[in-house]
């Protein structure tokens, strides 16, 4: 398309037919809307095209391919359709079931993971002595890579590490933080919360910026205790923020713990810290079963979708009630 040609033929084109239409066929039907020619009507679609294409080609299409791939076989049956075989294998695998159980556990731990930054942000907002220092200190871990965080806590939580030495000195027995299957998942989740709550804290502080301080003052004048102020003023005022933090924290917990798991437990001990993400990686990378891994990815996607929608639903209702 040469740049010189279009201007002269295009410009008159929109004017003539629409004027004619307006005059002859529908004089009373809002002529201004019709004035936009075909080009103008097409423009939005063309302008949207890059964004839509990027989403369709780079997001949705691969997603469809991945789901489709999960219905084919691995190894000898590579490329042949196998129906639901991969899903049957998946749900028969005790490791994947452990991974799903851990997802459930993380969802249950979610309120704690949201409450911690929420409470700390409240204290900072209420200008607890030293709040400036705390604000910086709390955010600090958020800039560390999960691998570094994992390595640090590997040392701290080692069986002969400093945490156990302190416990021993106090007279409590040592705990095999990363070696005990009942404890390890909590240890890893705890470290994940420690490493990421800074981000949620910042979001909460941003939410506080929009909170009307006169409400808090009024509550104080009315003699509300700290707990009452939080319950009746701060929480209702921050519903949207809490909602946002809930959803992002959950996504973070389910999709960003790979680095920590990889460094801290490798899915162990006894496979007790498997998460779907780690399972996918093991099946694809270690056992060369990409189709099974695709099935697990699809399952993870559906779980995320369901949990996310349910959360938004619950929180929205809670928001309305407040």
């Amino acid at each position: 398309m040469s740049p010189g040609a279009p201007p002269s033929p295009v410009r008159p084109a929109p004017a003539t037919p629409s004027q004619g239409q307006a005059r002859d066929t529908a004089p009373r039907r809002r002529p201004r809307r019709r004035r936009g020619s075909r080009t103008e009507r097409l423009a939005p679609f063309v302008l949207l095209a890059p964004a839509v294409l990027i989403i369709v080609v780079l997001r949705l299409w691969p997603l469809v391919l991945g789901v489709n791939f999960s219905f084919t076989g691995d190894g000898d049956r590579n490329g042949t359709p196998v129906g639901l075989d991969n899903y049957v294998t998946l749900f028969a695998d005790p490791l994947f079931r452990t991974a799903l159980r851990n997802v459930g556990l993380l969802v249950l731990l979610l309120p704690v993971a949201v409450a911690i930054p929420g409470l700390l942000a409240t204290f900072i907002y209420l200008r607890t002595p030293g709040h400036r220092v705390y604000r910086a200190v709390y955010f600090f871990p958020a800039v560390l890579s999960p691998v570094i965080v994992g390595a640090i806590f590997n040392l701290l939580l080692a069986h002969d590490g400093p945490v156990n030495e302190v416990l021993g000195a106090v007279g409590l027995g040592s705990v095999d933080w990363l070696g005990d299957p009942d404890v390890a998942i909590f240890a890893v989740a705890g470290v994940h919360v420690w490493a990421t709550f800074g981000m949620a804290l910042v979001v909460f502080l941003a939410g506080f910026a929009n909170l009307d301080p006169s409400l808090l003052d009024a509550a104080r004048v009315d003699g509300a205790s700290l707990a009452q102020s939080i319950r009746h003023v701060i929480v209702p005022g921050l519903t949207r923020t809490i909602q946002f933090v809930f959803v992002t924290t959950m996504i973070g917990m389910l999709t960003s713990m790979f680095g920590l798991l990889f460094v801290m437990t490798s899915g162990g001990p006894e496979g007790s810290t498997y998460l779907p993400e780690y399972y996918i990686w093991v099946q694809q990378g270690q056992f060369n079963q990409p189709a099974l891994a695709s099935a697990a990815s699809t399952a993870l996607f559906l779980i995320m979708l369901l949990v996310g929608l349910a959360q938004i639903g619950v929180l929205r209702r809670a928001g309305r009630e407040v």
Binding site: V10, G36, S37, T39, L42, L47, A49, P50
Partner: peptide, 15 residues
């Protein structure tokens, strides 16, 4: 109209 068309052409071409 012309401006919209031009941007559309440009964007489409780039895409």
């Amino acid at each position: 109209g012309q401006r919209a068309l031009w941007s559309a052409v440009l964007v489409l071409g780039l895409a």
